[in-house]
């Protein structure tokens, strides 16, 4: 692994989001959807908190992020440009990390404008800044995990739509799975809660920064990157 190659690949990938309208469309849709959900209820509940915003975030991101990552490898396979990239003096790990970091950074850029929500809300009442901060740290980890999963599913096929669907299904499933645990016996429930992204994200967004939750997200990223590397190994 070489930092320089990762940086070059990352820079190119990040800028490529702005070469086509896809990047702008995704940012636009995200801001409209999340803004609408927040402000359509905030004046009804009469409470000054971003709880609904963070509750919905995993759900929305599980569709938004795979839409961004779907092209990362599927498109390169389709056009054959991976043959050119794969024969440059860089390792597959450089390529994966470069692409992952670029998309992750793009998601952060996408979420960045929502920082105006807490700023706006704090003028209305007393907002707990600690909870907000912890929520954004959770958002950072969550988007990293979903990006890593999306990058992995992009290596499974040449077809971007299929890559998107598989990625979205995996992310969505991980998000909602902890909602089903009520019906299950205790020991299975705790396993399912552990693998659920939604469960861990909720802990963090409530303001509890637990190392177990952070470790969970980091291991998802690690596992996804490792699987991606396996997929990309030469045949």
């Amino acid at each position: 692994m070489k930092n320089r190659s990762i940086l070059s690949i990352g820079k190119k990938e990040f800028l490529s989001f702005f070469l086509s309208p896809v990047g702008y469309i995704v940012i636009g849709i995200y801001l409209i959807v999340s803004g609408w959900f927040l402000f359509s209820t905030i004046f009804l509940t009469k409470s000054v908190s971003l709880r609904d915003f963070f509750n919905l975030m995993p759900m929305i991101l599980s569709f938004m992020i795979p839409a961004l990552t779907m092209k990362s490898f599927a498109e390169e396979y389709k056009t054959g440009s991976y043959e050119m990239l794969g024969t440059q003096p860089v390792t597959t790990m450089d390529i994966i990390i470069g692409k992952l970091l670029a998309t992750w950074l793009f998601v952060i850029v996408m979420i960045l404008p929502t920082l105006s929500y807490p700023l706006f809300l704090s003028t209305l009442g007393d907002l707990d800044s600690g909870v907000v901060l912890s929520g954004y740290i959770g958002a950072l980890l969550l988007s990293g995990s979903f990006t890593a999963i999306g990058v992995f599913t992009s290596t499974l096929t040449q077809n971007q739509i299929i890559a998107f669907l598989i990625g979205a299904v995996i992310c969505f499933f991980l998000t909602i799975i902890d909602g089903m645990v009520i019906l299950l016996p205790n020991f299975i429930a705790s396993i399912i809660e552990y693998i659920s992204t939604g469960f861990h994200f909720q802990n963090i967004s409530k303001g509890i920064l637990d190392s177990r939750d952070i470790l969970y997200f980091l291991s998802i990223i690690f596992l996804a990157v490792l699987s991606t590397e396996r997929r990309l190994q030469k045949k």
Binding site: T79, G80, M84, T87, Q88
Partner: peptide
């Protein structure tokens, strides 16, 4: 890979990039 320069069949390139940007990217790699 450092010793070899390779042009694959039908020259697959990144179609949205400028020629200059593309070659600069390769130069960096």
């Amino acid at each position: 890979k450092k010793l070899i320069g390779y042009l694959p069949e039908s020259a697959p390139l990144y179609s949205e990039m400028l020629v200059y940007d593309y070659l600069k990217y390769i130069a960096e790699l």
